[in-house]
Design a protein around this nucleic acid. Structure first.
Length: 435
DNA sequence: TCTGGGGTCCTAGGACCC
DNA sequence: TCTGGGGTCCTAGGACCC
């Protein structure tokens, strides 16, 4: 009898029997360990972008809907309705291929602003239940509800999970799936298995029984490459990982395997760091970048230079908004044959000056662009980010820097109000395809 | 059927210092 | 003439996630 997990479909009868089951396993757990098990939720929106579009336009409900880039512009799928998925459409698939599979689907390019706004409202709902919310992407978050069960007058984590599930559905109109477990990895996997629109709880002490029969590919961090490597060792299921000496796995497959072995046992490094949930300062970005795939490959140096100017401005704008400076600039090129190269350069003193990004990227482009081929993609990323230290500025530089900063800030404000292209650097004026 | 764009983290070699 | 070991920084590439 499978006792260790249950999908709760929000009906009174099953709800009650689930409570009885929980009571039983929880009792056993209490006897086995002194400490109360943690209750971690992983909440993940179902087909998020498509769901938001459906809230805006209810006529889309139940149809094949695909959100992604423009078909002519080499776009890919970012979100597909379950009706489209039935036909084999999935995210990251070229839009052209999706169109072949679903010729009559509704294709949308989507609006990131809209999705961010929905995301913010959804996170606000979660924060009503616990302050320990850690958002990990636009449509998913971890919640630690261990400390607030009593506040919500229940012993049962799934009571809170169900309430969150219903509140998001009622107030926002977007379906989600929730995994409940004593640690993050198991909660995340449970949420995935609960899709769509389900809640799945893995009871305390049942983690490895739940995880063992699942394919290793289900473990977060195991992609196609790692899966292949594991297969060579005869590892197919998560349980197989436990049969190996972690030291052997680490030697053969590196640090990644070490993590996986731990996760297979239902442990994740982040579980220890409680501070992750309640840390005051949201960890600052490690890098900020922007890249563009041309709709037609180009070898025109003027277009390339204009694009670099544009990318540098975009990156610098976001960096200033975050109040950061960089030391490293990375240029990325992808040629027509899809071969991809990066070149980077670290400068001595941190700055947020877009012209430094541009000049550095230009120099890197000169050093890299030797292949006699047209370019498909070009990108600029800044990293080694720091909060600018005012003391670094020498006195005579300070005034200059201050003027520059004021100018750049006013540029940012204007763009905020009237859109990015309201103020354009002369270099990319006239290259309308960048808009 | 022709492969986006935003990221994070890990590896590995070489330079340089002690 | 042959040649240590540890630490840190820089660079390039690649796996993976959403």
């Amino acid at each position: 009898m499978k006792r260790f997990f249950r999908i709760t479909p929000f009906r009174g009868a099953t709800f009650f029997s689930t409570m009885l089951q929980y009571e039983q396993t929880a009792k056993i757990t209490m006897q086995n360990s002194e400490k109360k098990p943690k209750s971690i939720l992983h909440i993940d929106m179902d087909a998020f972008f498509v769901s938001v579009e459906t809230v805006i336009n209810p006529k889309l409900k139940g149809k094949q809907v695909i959100v992604g880039g423009p078909i002519e512009g080499r776009g890919v799928v970012t979100s597909a309705s379950y009706q489209a998925r039935e036909k084999g459409v999935h995210s990251a698939m070229p839009m052209v291929a999706a169109k072949k599979l679903c010729p009559n689907a509704i294709f949308l390019t989507g609006s990131h602003h809209l999705y961010s706004d929905f995301s913010r409202r959804i996170m606000e709902i979660m924060e009503r239940y616990t302050p320990a919310v850690e958002q990990v992407s636009i449509d998913e978050a971890y919640l630690d509800i261990t400390g607030c069960l009593r506040l919500h007058r229940t012993k049962y984590p799934f009571v809170i999970a169900n309430s969150i599930h219903e509140t998001i559905a009622n107030e926002i109109g977007v379906p989600c799936s929730i995994g409940i477990a004593t640690n993050r990895v198991t909660a995340k996997i449970a949420a995935n298995l609960a899709k769509p629109n389900g809640v799945l709880e893995v009871y305390p002490d049942c983690e490895s029984a739940f995880l063992s029969p699942l394919p290793v590919r289900k473990l977060p961090g195991v992609g196609p490459v790692a899966e292949k490597e594991y297969k060579k060792l005869g590892i197919r299921e998560i349980g197989d990982l436990l049969k190996f000496d972690p030291a052997v796995l680490t030697r053969v497959l590196g640090k990644q395997a070490e993590q996986c072995a731990k996760r297979a046992g239902g442990e994740s490094s982040k579980d220890q760091a409680e501070s992750n949930f309640l840390s005051q300062e949201r960890d600052t970005a490690k890098s900020i970048g922007k890249e563009i795939t041309y709709s037609v490959d180009t070898g025109d140096p003027e277009i390339l230079a204009a694009t670099l100017a544009y990318l540098s401005e975009r990156v610098a704008g976001r960096m200033r908004k975050a109040g950061l400076s960089f030391r490293k600039v990375t240029l990325k090129l992808r040629y027509a044959d899809f071969d991809t190269y990066t070149r980077s350069k670290t400068i001595n003193l941190p700055t947020s000056d877009p012209s430094v990004i541009y000049r550095t990227a230009r120099a890197l482009l000169t050093s890299l662009d030797k292949k006699r081929q047209k370019i498909r993609l070009i990108g600029v990323t800044v990293s080694t980010l720091t909060k600018p230290d005012p003391q670094i500025n020498l006195f005579d530089q300070a005034e200059n820097e201050d003027k520059k900063r004021k100018l750049l800030n006013s540029i940012d404000e204007t763009r905020e109000r009237y859109g990015f292209t309201s103020i354009m650097s002369a270099r990319w004026l006239g290259h309308s395809q960048l808009r």
